[in-house]
Design a protein around this nucleic acid. Structure first.
Lengths: 330, 330
DNA sequence: TTGTAGGCGTTATCAA
DNA sequence: TTGATAACGCCTACAA
């Protein structure tokens, strides 16, 4: 692999001059600049990123932490982030936390180590305080997460509203007994608390009581959805609709329901969350809450780059629109 | 960020000794070793990867090139590779080529630049010759691709057989007019040529002619599948079955067919490829060809690490089993 | 068993 | 406008 010294030697100039050309610094004569450029091309020179990072330059790399890439929601989010980054000359380092606290910390250390210029977090595993302590090493942007009183920019959706309009839709369709699946624990604090509140408010406004046996917590996967449906089938007094936390859970629920001869939405209505490509592939097509993944990715990159270029950049919160997509499952 | 010098100073030892401890070298007294370990923990020291890479050490990083991460097949493949790598102490750098030749070359340059120790390629965009020239910089392993007479290890599936058993299955079910979707161009060479041959052989064995109007080329997405079905619906003499190159195309075909009132498999049988989670979510559940993604990932990592540890490692080809999964769509 | 010193490739500072 | 040089953090000959 040719180095900057090779380029210097071959063009009869100093490393310093070559470096200036590489980094588009001023005070290089057009003549020498062209010579350097030509030589670089000739021997196929590429700057060594490790050396650059070590020297303490900008890395033009942004880390993106996601729980798992096999979750299509995050795959699309990462993809949109990467494309936005690429168009601005940045690389993206994809980091899967696999919901592991230690891995998350290890990725945050990339900031300390100057492996990345900034980090976009799409999920949070550790205490916020621990995470926030890393902002002294570089910008952190929250994408699709929301933390009260944090000092970092957040690009997020109004999850409260998402659940609210979803449940409202079910109520309008005449449902009164609505099962509810959350990824968290239906607690006041923690994951999905905003959605939980949207759910409760919507019910309350229609004078419907929350029935604890219709709340399913810690559900994430297709398999979870199947289990939920199995439980519902055992009930004497079944709910007439199910609101879920993701299209995948909804898919599992539908699969199991159809397997057992139930008709959707006549026997039971099912509602997803995310609006993944899957939603349109299900039969009947899934009514769901659309999250504007592409916009979130683009905005996150925009913000983090602004922050990089101007550390005084005003930290604020961006809320993107979330909307109901009515299809055939409700 | 603390450096090795900080650890050395604080523990009253030299950088060399600290380095030896970090890298588990011999000839360090237990006493000093413990002292160093303690000091490292105290000040939260982590070695700087850039410095290590620059110094020309192993990076314990393996690059994985995929076309796009939003394709679930590749998402699962990457995930299995990452998990296998992690369990052996390696990191994985996920590289999306987005089917761009230049990006692929840029990623190959990671090898030159010593950013990664080796590269696993799950797709190929450039001429093989150009790619192969990079093996002088480090091992390249092909995963899910096959190149005649290459000098690199390959972990792949018998795609010929995949298509063959799929088509055979349809024929056994009594189908004689079978539409065929490929990601490539139905050429003698190039992408999907093995599948194409399996398709043709299976037909020939049953005395069925290939009907050019039933061949759909360059199909990849759900949207493509919908288009294919639209074309089929316009035909006077419709095929009774469709063999596709991925579960997603199959999903698009089913969606459109159902939309237009066709029953699956009675009016038209549909067959996928991959056995993604989606296959079980479709209604009816999709008959498909299962690709052992997890095994492929694991094997690829195994091979590339063997190669890293022993450059004399004998290069060979590994074929993993591919199998038919019969569900309800055929 | 431990320490010293040099160099990996780059960029910034200073001097010319 | 250009060049020499030091420094980023680490590892490894070589010396002690």
């Amino acid at each position: 692999m040719p180095t900057i010294s090779d380029v210097a030697k071959l063009s009869g100039l100093s490393k310093a001059t070559v470096s200036r050309v590489i980094n588009n610094h001023s005070y290089v004569s057009k003549e020498k600049k062209d010579l350097v450029l030509k030589t670089m091309k000739e021997i196929g020179y590429t700057p060594n990123p490790s050396a650059r990072k070590l020297r303490g330059q900008v890395t033009t790399t942004i880390g993106v932490i996601v729980p798992r890439i096999v979750n299509p929601f995050f795959a699309y989010l990462v993809d949109s982030i990467e494309q936005a980054a690429y168009s601005k000359g940045y690389q993206v380092l994809i980091c899967q936390s696999h919901e592991d606290r230690d891995k998350e910390i290890a990725f945050l250390n990339l900031l300390k180590n100057r492996q990345v210029d900034g980090i976009i977090m799409t999920s949070i595993e550790n205490e916020w305080q621990a995470i926030e302590s890393y902002i002294e090493y570089g910008p952190i942007v929250l994408c699709n997460e929301y933390i009260e009183n944090s000092k970092v920019p957040m690009i997020h959706l109004n999850q409260y509203k998402g659940a609210y309009i979803g449940i409202k839709h079910l109520i309008e369709k005449g449902h009164k007994r609505i099962a509810y699946c959350t990824g968290g624990l239906f607690a006041e604090q923690g994951k999905d608390k905003d959605r939980n509140q949207g759910f409760q408010t919507a019910l309350k406004e229609s004078g419907i009581e929350v029935e604890p046996e219709l709340i399913f917590v810690n559900k994430h996967t297709v398999e979870d959805g199947k289990q939920v449906m199995k439980n519902i089938l055992k009930m004497d007094d079944r709910p007439t609709a199910v609101f879920t936390g993701s299209d995948e859970i909804a898919g599992g629920i539908m699969m199991e329901a159809i397997e057992c001869g139930l008709r959707i939405p006549d026997d039971i209505a099912v509602m997803g969350f995310d609006d993944q490509p899957l939603a349109e592939l299900l039969n009947p097509k899934l009514t769901t809450i659309k999250q504007p993944v592409e916009q979130m990715g683009k905005k996150s990159i925009e913000i983090i780059i602004d922050l990089l270029k101007n550390p005084e950049f005003k930290v604020q919160t961006y809320e993107l629109p979330i909307q109901l997509v009515v299809r055939k499952s409700t």
